[in-house]
Measured scan of single mutants.
Amino acid sequence: HNLTITQGKLFFHYNPKLCLSEIHKMEEVSGTKGRQERNDIALKTNGDQASCENELLKFSYIRTSFDKILLRWEPYWPPDFRDLLGFMLFYKEAPYQNVTEFDGQDACGSNSWTVVDIDPPLRSNDPKSQNHPGWLMRGLKPWTQYAIFVKTLVTFSDERRTYGAKSDIIYVQTDATNPSVPLDPISVSNSSSQIILKWKPPSDPNGNITHYLVFWERQAEDSELFELDYCLKGLKLPSRTWSPPFESEDSQKHNQSEYEDSAGECCSCPKTDSQILKELEESSFRKTFEDYLHNVVFVPRKTSSGTGAEDPRPSRKRRSLGDVGNVTVAVPTVAAFPNTSSTSVPTSPEEHRPFEKVVNKESLVISGLRHFTGYRIELQACNQDTPEERCSVAAYVSARTMPEAKADDIVGPVTHEIFENNVVHLMWQEPKEPNGLIVLYEVSYRRYGDEELHLCVSRKHFALERGCRLRGLSPGNYSVRIRATSLAGNGSWTEPTYFYVTDYLDVPSNIA
């Protein structure tokens, strides 16, 4: 807008934040220059609390790290170098490059900038070799853009010569660093050979998330399962459950009422301010606690030095998902009996873990797994792929695949051998790939016309006998059925096997 004052003059007093240069501009645009008398524009009460600059400061050096910015700028000295009290560095987070010096300023003089007072450097006698002032900004957020400017702080001049310097606002972004852990990993099994893994992005990506790394490792069953005799009275049979499938998407929606109208769909109840505040506090606490764990609990591995020492970490090797089922080394339970199943799973520490690289999504279907087997899954978020990966501390989750139908069934015939004193040795093959492992066998036998009897055969007993022995049988026709019990439950009964026990007292003698 054009402003013209045809008559009258300007009068400025007691404006401590208004620089004289701005008042002189007002004289020019209003056409009143030359009308004012000496005392109409006070030299001592206008701009006496402001830094009124008329020179431009330029930054000469900028260096960044993930949490620091090192700045240096060209030296500046007023005509009387004693008038320079120091520099004021202003900075704040700036997602967009549209910041002005006066953003967030209120009537009390406060604003949204963080201000650092910096002492002037030592003055050199040689004007050509003056030290460049600077400042190291610490405690910054990774991968965050900051708006920065600097200006001088000078003393009051009796001659009211307006001098000083100020830089333009520059924008500097800190470097990326390792992201925080992925949030809320959930693993479920939808079949006997697959596990579905879902997660949420890290709360602090500290860069642009480029991919996720998912490692999985087959877990050995508890050692007590191999040692305890679950045929003993009072000892509860062990059981394991597989990871249940995901709930429906509708039930997972946030901010939804727990109660549904019987007449149909209901609208979600909005969260109160107290609920939102509580969630923010919980989120802040979780982030602080995660940072504490990362800094205190997890110790970084030592990389190899120039002395030739090897990095103890196993090298990563990509495998196809079809090879995942046989990740671990199978060892027989008892070496003397080769027909026992290889369900003991000690994992070799030198073995390469299978892994998958996930790009542009937060889910993965891990296939080719062994049925009813526990897996430990390790999830890392990465925001750099080359020249070397920059990934987060791992988040861990466990899951067990679903049982395989008929995996616990005894394959092959049940054979028998009759000894003296009416002892019958029953023999059968253990299931080759049971659900988890076989903890015991149930032997059901009966003599024709009598009630059915049951015998429990422990895992250890089966390994020693290759089956079991029935003792003290009365003469007669017998039928026997056997079924295995694994961590997933009972298998199917075998087809009945028949044998006849004679009275050993009636056996004919070869003595003449």
Rank of each mutant, 00 (worst) to 15 (best):
Y448M: 03
V331S: 12
V345G: 08
Y259D: 08
E495A: 14
R313Y: 04
I418K: 15
E350K: 14
L453T: 15
N326A: 09
K406N: 15
V443D: 01
S458A: 10
A394D: 12
R481V: 06
D408E: 01
G449R: 03
T210S: 02
F462N: 07
P349S: 07
R313C: 14
C266T: 11
A484H: 00
F289L: 03
E217P: 14
S320M: 07
N477Y: 15
S239W: 14
Y498A: 08
C231E: 01
P387R: 06
N422S: 11
P434G: 04
E221F: 13
D291C: 02
K302D: 11
S486Y: 02
K317V: 05
E356T: 12
G322P: 08
S344M: 10
L213F: 10
M427R: 08
L225P: 07
H461T: 11
V334W: 11
S479V: 09
Q256D: 11
A309Y: 09
E404S: 08
G476I: 00
G325L: 02
T485D: 13
G306D: 11
H416P: 05
E452M: 15
E265F: 13
V501K: 08
P238M: 04
S304P: 14
D311F: 08
D311C: 03
S486L: 01
P496L: 09
V296E: 09
V397T: 02
I276H: 10
Y375W: 14
T497P: 01
R466H: 11
A463R: 12
R240K: 09
N255T: 07
G412T: 09
L426A: 00
C382P: 15
P300W: 05
L293S: 03
D311G: 06
D450V: 15
N360A: 14
L470S: 01
V214Q: 00
E362K: 11
S479W: 07
E356D: 06
R447I: 15
Q384F: 06
C269I: 04
I438T: 13
L232I: 13
V296I: 07
K271R: 09
K317T: 09
V365A: 10
G472S: 07
K287W: 10
T386M: 14
R390E: 02
K460Y: 09
Y445M: 10
I418R: 11
R313G: 06
P475Y: 10
T497N: 05
N510Q: 09
T307E: 14
A309N: 10
K357E: 10
I438E: 02
F337W: 08
H461D: 04
E281P: 01
R390G: 05
N208G: 10
Q380H: 15
P387I: 13
V423R: 13
E227F: 14
L225Q: 08
T343Q: 09
E351L: 12
